[in-house]
Design a protein around this nucleic acid. Structure first.
Lengths: 196, 196
DNA sequence: ACAGACGGAGAACGATCGTTCTCCGCAGTC
DNA sequence: GACTGCGGAGAACGATCGTTCTCCGTCTGT
């Protein structure tokens, strides 16, 4: 697993570099707006290597979404790190969104964007988006259950988070995250029996 | 307004037919996935006529979004028709979504989809999406004010509605509208001082 | 009936893109 | 130092697409 003799770096390195470059380009401009040759240039690899790592553009898109999913889950975990109360961990979701929305490159949810652009013609992309949203819903549901809330809370909190992403993207107002958080506080208070 | 001698129909007819055909295709498959020639075929016009009505694809996309905005506002008004209480009119938003989500052709918010696909490269498309979301937010804000709610309610209700659209699209579950409605009921109850 | 304009069908054009192929330099081996 | 094979650079290929142009039939007015 040492560095190879080529300038390309480790095989995993190359893959990661391609995915990172493709993600930035796809997310920022839309997938079909970015030619493979631009991904190649941004990743600093040859077309031959690019197609050796990914059989085609669709496979690259799926890999990009999978990595984006991994990073999302990492960020979500980091936002909740150190917090013990389920309620605080639930609200950390919106703090995480707040952080994200203020990022200059923010342009909405990459999964929603990819789904809208390619979901109808690419089952793999549609499935990646579905899986991503599904794990997020499961995560929120688990926390809501730990908080002792009724079954209606988690779906509602998910809707707030999803709505915040698209609204922040289109309106360009990052404070949407705080609005979502305040609404979440109200819903949580109403959903937890004793007032926890 | 009699029929003209050509097979094309009235000029307004032709424009409307083109927009309707383009909307169905763009919305269902993604904009870049639909060639102009397919719009032409679906609308039953010639390419010459198509380009006589719209100087290019982007202008057609904008026209499609404007018409979609008009239909959205019509549907929203129809859902609130006959209801007098502001609270009921607010909740009618989610009944309207419910109706929409159960439509077989539902595939998310056309504005969000268009924004994700083309917003980065087409200011006109980005602006159409922004304008659409803006008028919706104004509409909800007006109703919330009429209901005597505090300023936090309207943005929260908007987030629920937006989140419902993307979640319904990706997860494919139309009952998301009812979940959003229940959450909205809780938020409204908490935001209106006296309980009205 | 005929000149002339209009509009349709679809070929044509130029550009772009995903993907593959060719050519060449270079590293390691005897 | 010749040989081999890998990988890079980028040309090439085939397909698609947005847009324009050509050709031809038809309808109008006289």
């Amino acid at each position: 697993m040492g560095t190879t003799t080529t300038t390309g770096g480790t095989q995993d390195d190359v893959r990661a570099r391609i995915v990172a470059a493709a993600d930035a380009l796809f997310y920022g401009r839309g997938i079909q707006a970015v030619p493979m040759d631009e991904v190649r240039a941004a990743a600093g690899v040859s077309l031959k290597r690019l197609y050796a790592e990914f059989p085609g553009k669709e496979a690259l898109v799926v890999a990009v979404l999978q990595e984006r999913h991994r990073v999302w889950e990492e960020g979500l975990a980091a936002a909740a790190a150190g917090l013990v109360e389920p309620r605080a961990r639930l609200l950390a979701v919106y703090d995480f969104l707040d952080l994200w929305f203020t990022d200059e490159t923010f342009r909405g949810c990459g999964f929603i964007n990819a789904f809208g652009e390619l979901g109808a013609s690419s089952p793999a992309v549609a499935e990646a988006a579905r899986a991503h949203k599904d794990t997020f819903e499961r995560y929120v549901s688990r926390l809501a259950a730990e908080a002792g809330a009724d079954d209606d809370l988690a779906p509602a909190l998910v809707l707030l988070a999803e709505g915040a992403q698209t609204t922040a993207a289109i309106s360009g107002r990052p404070d949407v995250a705080r609005q979502a958080r305040r609404a979440a506080e109200v819903l949580i208070a109403a959903a937890v029996p004793a007032g926890g």
